[in-house]
Design a binder for these strands. Structure first.
Length: 431
RNA sequence: CGGGGAGUAGCGCAGCCUGGUAGCGCACCUGGUUUGGGACCAGGGGGUCGAAGGUUCGAAUCCUUUCUCCCCGACCA
């Protein structure tokens, strides 16, 4: 993509609305525009990141046999009345009447709908286990939306629902998902910490929340330091779940089972939550199958959420400096910037275009900064929008036979002999 | 929902106390000069001051009502 053809309205000054760093940077980098409290438009650059995050999540979900589908944002109140949640959900649920006065709602979650879909089609234990998910916008009319997309009223969420014959089978499904979650966050360059979460009144139920480490996070985490260096190839959910990890109000230094030197304290942001809740919804919404003996049994369900739009903010909280965003390569909107410092110089143009077409052919999502503006603006814009690898082409360097390559994440630049530029850049991009 | 704060040009702000018909920086447009870290000079365009009502000869400014947004708290992906 040529910068001159792309819509990235970067700002020098940020609207006074924004308070936390990720929100400021998202506005500054032209990723989002607020529409009303807790509701945002996603501009092209922001959308690219959102899509990159989505596709990592999608790949890891599909890898463990989850089925992607898409349910509507607007739901009829009927199923919610059946499940009893139409009253329970309170003011957080956005209620709407259609033209004939029927009660509708903008879905805050999808247990009711999915259970209804399941019970329509599945009648035998032979079809289990099943795991269905979708990535869809939700709406929760929060008491107080804040922190930009980290706590919006409208937000994009990946939610799955697992269906199993009994509790043991459901726990296998649960652990599969657990593992997929850890892998997903690791691929985004994040450090996930899983914590056993409170599940409320129904005993025997299981729930974990997933936080990622970020200095500016909302919660304070106490955890075994081994959780910081997980090997995705040898992930064992049971072992992982046995490590110590707690948020500050659950952490009691006297009862902490691990040695002080192994205990780490850090700030975290919650980006995912998984639950096993047994037959809670399958009973109310008549989701049952026939077992081996021909007996009707309610299916055991779990639900699994990842805050996709929240992750965009969380990733920035975890990866930035005073110049802007430092995207991990896996989610970066552009992997490579070619910064042409002198857009009316023939040599600079020729070289820039050569690299641009080369890296596009190599399937590298490349931003070619061909704008006719000052050097300072180009360099600072590319730093702000956080392209991890930048090739900086200037008249002076070209005359000296070199080109500069910047690693935005390490914040290091080096001068490379012109003949080596493609090779070096490719190597950095793949590392 | 309780407590605090803010709405004046696209963005950041001043003006309000003490009423006299709106200003600065950035951005934008034109011309020129520049070019290795958000350029410089000259010229220029853009605002019914969140909305409604009231007081007054006259309201951004005073009074009333209302809407919106932000921050702190309780709740959450």
């Amino acid at each position: 993509m040529k910068y001159s053809e792309f819509f990235i309205p970067t700002l020098k000054e940020v609207p006074s609305d924004a308070e936390i760093i990720s929100h400021k940077l998202m506005i500054k980098a032209g990723m989002i525009k607020q529409s009303s409290a807790g509701i945002y438009s996603w501009l092209p650059l922001g959308l690219k990141v959102l899509k990159n995050i989505e596709s990592i999540i999608r790949e890891e979900q599909n890898n463990v046999g989850a089925n992607e589908m898409l349910m509507p944002t607007i739901q009829s109140a009927d199923l919610w009345i059946k499940s009893g949640r139409y009253d329970d959900y309170g003011k957080e649920m956005l209620r709407i009447n259609d033209r004939s006065g029927r009660e509708m709602l903008y879905g805050p979650t999808n247990e009711e709908l999915i259970t209804d879909i399941f019970q329509t089609y599945v009648t035998s234990y032979k079809e289990l286990p099943k795991n269905l998910y979708h990535i869809q916008w939700k709406f929760r009319d929060e008491l107080r939306p804040r922190f930009g997309v980290m706590r919006g009223r409208e937000f994009l969420m990946k939610d799955n629902y697992s269906f199993d014959l009994n509790e043991d089978a459901a726990k296998i499904s649960y652990n599969k998902m657990f593992k997929a979650y850890i892998k997903t966050f690791l691929r985004m360059g994040l450090t996930p910490i899983s914590l056993r979460a409170d599940t409320g009144p129904i005993g025997g139920n299981l729930s974990h929340e997933f936080q990622i480490l970020a200095n500016t996070g909302e919660s304070t985490l106490y955890y075994d330091q081994e959780l910081e260096s997980l090997d995705p190839e040898s992930l064992d959910p049971d072992k992982l779940q046995s490590y110590y990890a707690a948020v500050d109000d659950q952490h009691d230094p006297k009862k902490c089972p691990i040695a002080k030197e192994d205990l780490k304290i850090s700030k975290g942001i919650e980006v995912g939550h998984i639950f096993y809740f047994g037959t809670k919804y399958s009973e109310k919404l008549n989701a049952y199958v026939q077992d081996h003996n021909g007996k009707q049994v309610n299916v055991h369900m779990g639900s699994y959420g990842i805050g996709v739009s929240r992750l965009v903010g969380a990733l920035i909280e975890a990866n930035h400096d005073d110049k802007g965003i430092k995207w991990p390569k896996s989610v970066a909107p552009f992997k490579l910037s070619i910064v042409n410092l002198m857009s009316d110089d023939l040599n600079c143009n020729t070289k820039s275009l050569e690299y641009y077409s080369y890296f596009m052919k190599e399937n590298i999502d490349t931003l070619y900064d061909d704008r006719n503006c000052s050097i300072g603006k180009k360099l600072s814009d590319n730093d702000l929008i956080g392209t991890p690898i930048q090739i900086i082409i200037g008249k002076r360097d070209l005359a000296a036979g070199v080109i500069e390559i910047k690693d935005r994440i390490l914040d290091k630049t080096e001068k490379i002999q012109i003949d080596d530029v493609k090779k070096v850049a490719l190597k950095k991009l793949k590392s």
